[in-house]
C-alpha cells in the first residue's frame, strides 16, 4: 500500500529509483539520505493535511528545510517521528497565522488534486473536501492514525498532546466526517469536463 497507482501506470516502478538517483549534488550525507527516504511518506502526510497538492508540496518543502536547519537537535532515533512532528507543528502554525479558515478556492483545489490520479478523482475530491471542513487539529489526528498508521500514543507524542485529547479528537473527526460524507452523498458532485 505504500506505493500509489501511479507506480503501476509507469509500468516500471522506477519512481523509487529516481529519488535515490541523485544524492550526489550536495546532499550526500547520511542524514540527507535518511531524510530523502522519508520524503514520500512526508509528501503523503502533507497532502493529506492540505487543501491542494500545491499547498502540500509547499508544506513538504518547509518541513524538509526546517529538518535540515535543526538537524543538530535530532537525537538520532526515529527520524520519521521527528520529521512528522516538525511538519505537524508547521501545519499548525500556518493555521494559527491564517485568518480563521483558509480561503483557497475549492475549484482550484480540485483542479490540482485531480491531475495525477489513476483512481476515481471524484472520490478523492469528495474525501478531501470533507476533510477540509474539519478543524486542522482534528484532521491532523485523523491523518496520523488512519493514513500514517501511528498508534494513539505515538500520535499524542507527535502532536504533543495527551492521549485523551487524541481520543476525543478522533471521535469528533469520525462523527463529523460521517455527517459530511452523508451530506455529500445526497448532492452528487459533478465536475465539468
Amino acid at each position: 500500500m505504500p506505493h500509489g497507482p501511479e507506480d503501476d501506470a509507469d509500468g516500471s516502478g522506477r519512481r523509487a529509483g529516481h529519488a535515490r538517483q541523485a544524492p550526489d549534488e550536495g546532499a550526500a550525507g547520511a542524514f540527507e539520505d535518511a531524510l530523502l527516504v522519508l520524503v514520500p511518506g512526508l509528501r503523503r502526510y502533507s497532502h493529506s493535511l492540505t487543501r491542494t497538492d500545491a499547498d502540500g508540496e509547499d508544506l513538504l518543502q518547509d518541513c524538509v528545510e526546517t529538518a535540515l536547519q535543526r538537524r543538530a537537535q535530532w537525537r538520532g532515533v526515529n527520524l520519521r517521528a521527528w520529521t512528522f512532528t516538525i511538519m505537524t507543528n508547521l501545519y499548525r502554525n500556518r493555521h494559527r497565522a491564517r485568518v480563521r479558515w483558509p480561503t483557497t478556492a475549492i475549484d482550484e483545489a480540485q483542479e490540482i488534486a485531480d491531475t495525477d490520479r489513476t483512481g476515481d478523482p471524484l472520490e478523492r475530491t469528495r474525501i478531501r473536501t470533507a476533510l477540509d471542513a474539519l478543524h486542522p487539529d482534528i484532521r491532523t489526528t485523523l491523518m496520523l492514525v488512519v493514513v500514517e498508521g501511528y498508534t494513539y500514543q505515538e500520535a499524542a507524542g507527535i502532536m504533543q498532546i495527551p492521549i485523551g485529547t487524541v481520543m476525543s479528537r478522533l471521535s469528533r473527526a469520525r462523527h463529523q466526517l460521517a455527517e459530511l460524507l452523508a451530506k455529500d452523498n445526497i448532492v452528487p458532485l459533478r465536475r465539468p469536463k
Binding site: M1, P2, H3, G4, P5, E6, D7, R15, A16, H18, A19, R20, Q21, A22, P23, E25, G26, A27, E32, L35, L36, V39, P40, G41, R43, R44, H47, S48, D53, G56, L60, Q61, V64, E65, L68, D116, R117, T118, G119, E123, R124, I127, R128, L131, L142, M143, V146, V147, R174, L177, A178, L181
Partner: peptide, 30 residues
C-alpha cells in the same frame, strides 16, 4: 461506517506516497 471512512481516506492518499525525481533538490541547503 468508521471502517469505510478509513478505507476511503487511505485510498484517497495512497497515490501521494511517491518519490519525485527532483526530491533531492529539497535537500540542498540554502
Amino acid at each position: 461506517g468508521w471502517w469505510s471512512q478509513n478505507e476511503r481516506i487511505r485510498d484517497a492518499f495512497a497515490g501521494d506516497y511517491i518519490a519525485r525525481i527532483d526530491d533531492p533538490d529539497l535537500l540542498r541547503p540554502d
